[in-house]
């Protein structure tokens, strides 16, 4: 899956989790940029991403992701494995 396709798929997960199809998620997007992306919704988002790509994030990754770009890196890396 190309980086663009990955980002598009991640966007769809965000739309679903945050009930907002106007969200424009980019690589540099952080939790502060998305209304409602706080610690309470973080795990829901993570698990939806995991289900969508059939991967599992480690605890370190769950706590340490700084932006969507890092999330894409991890998804791409897991896909290669």
């Amino acid at each position: 899956m190309s980086r663009e396709a990955l980002l598009k798929a991640v966007n769809e997960v965000f739309w679903d989790v945050f009930d907002d199809e106007s969200l424009d998620i980019r690589e540099e997007t952080t939790a502060a940029d998305v209304n409602g992306w706080d610690s309470l919704r973080h795990i829901t988002l993570i698990e939806n991403i995991e289900d969508r790509f059939d991967i599992r994030f480690t605890m370190l990754e769950v706590n340490g992701m700084k932006n969507v770009g890092e999330m894409l890196d991890i998804i791409a890396e897991r896909a290669r494995e």
Binding site: S39, H42, I43, M59, V62, N63
Partner: peptide
């Protein structure tokens, strides 16, 4: 507490 209790607990 978020990183060492809340998130691990949820996972």
């Amino acid at each position: 507490l978020r990183d060492y209790l809340f998130n691990p607990l949820q996972r």
